[in-house]
Simulated assay, not measured.
Amino acid sequence: MQAARGTSLSDADETQTKASTTVRRPVVRAIFVAVAVVLLAIDQVTKVAAVAGLTPGRPHQLVGSLLRLNLTRNPGAAFSTGTSHTAVFTALAIAAAIVTVWFAFRAGSRAWAVALGFLFAGVVGNLVDRVARAPRAFHGFVVDFLELPHWPIFNVADICITVAAVLILVLAYRGVRLSGLPVDPRPDAEDEQ
């Protein structure tokens, strides 16, 4: 059975799916931008509040012994590694932000838009600190202020990066393509391409 002369039904379905993905892209991009902007704003507002209201070395209990506010400035990466390489982390964060936007604007999946929005907000949230905070531009220290027992102090941007990593792993495990196009379940589909 043919959908049109010379076109199989599966080709017609794929063409229709690609067309709907193209129509969906503006919505997916809007989701990416909205998630990124809202989370980045939350990160920056909480950092400004932490700097204004907390004194380094004087923690405040927030949720019993589970969560406390403890202001610190981190020149390094996760777990305070590489503290003498702040400029390198700044360059890597700029590259990561660019790559994230590149992927986000090619995404055809709402789930990928959310995951990449989280990633962008986290990367740029810490990048803003590295670019704009003391001691000097592109060598700034990241403001961290959330502390759990037996865990390094972190911030909202770090939470965003962690959530993004989990979402990306789940999407990859479930076989959700960045494009939003369905994975062809037929075992011989690879041979036809």
Rank of each mutant, 00 (worst) to 15 (best):
A3K: 14
L9K: 04
D11F: 00
D13E: 14
D13V: 13
T15A: 15
Q16W: 14
Q16T: 12
V23R: 14
R24S: 14
P26A: 05
V27Y: 14
A30S: 15
I31E: 10
V35E: 08
V35L: 11
L40T: 00
A41D: 04
A41I: 07
Q44L: 15
V45N: 03
A49P: 00
A49M: 14
A50V: 03
V51Y: 08
V51W: 08
A52P: 00
L54Q: 08
P56L: 06
P59N: 11
Q61F: 02
Q61P: 00
L62F: 02
V63R: 05
G64M: 13
G64L: 10
L66W: 10
L66N: 03
L67S: 03
N70T: 01
L71V: 06
T72N: 04
R73Y: 15
N74H: 02
G76F: 01
A78C: 09
F79T: 01
S80E: 14
G82T: 10
S84N: 13
H85M: 10
H85G: 00
V88T: 10
F89T: 00
F89E: 01
T90I: 04
L92Q: 06
A93C: 05
A93D: 06
A93G: 05
I94K: 03
A95D: 04
A95G: 13
A96G: 07
R106Y: 06
R106G: 11
S109I: 04
A113K: 10
A113D: 12
A113Y: 08
A113N: 11
V114I: 12
V114R: 07
V114F: 14
V114M: 10
V114L: 13
A115T: 05
L116Q: 04
G117C: 11
F120P: 01
F120T: 06
G125M: 08
N126M: 08
V131G: 12
A132Q: 10
R133Y: 12
A134I: 02
R136F: 09
R136S: 15
A137Y: 09
A137S: 15
F141E: 15
F141S: 14
V142K: 13
V143D: 01
V143K: 03
D144V: 07
D144W: 12
L146M: 15
F154Q: 10
N155M: 07
N155L: 09
D158I: 03
C160E: 07
I161L: 15
T162Y: 00
A164K: 03
V166M: 14
V166S: 04
L167P: 09
L167W: 13
I168Y: 03
V170H: 12
V170I: 15
V170C: 04
V170R: 07
V170L: 13
L171R: 08
Y173I: 11
Y173Q: 08
R174F: 07
R174N: 09
G175F: 13
V176S: 00
V176K: 06
V176M: 06
L178N: 09
L178F: 09
G180Y: 06
P182Q: 09
P182T: 03
P185C: 05
P187N: 06
D188M: 09
D191W: 11
D191C: 01
D191P: 01
E192N: 11
Q193M: 10
Q193C: 01
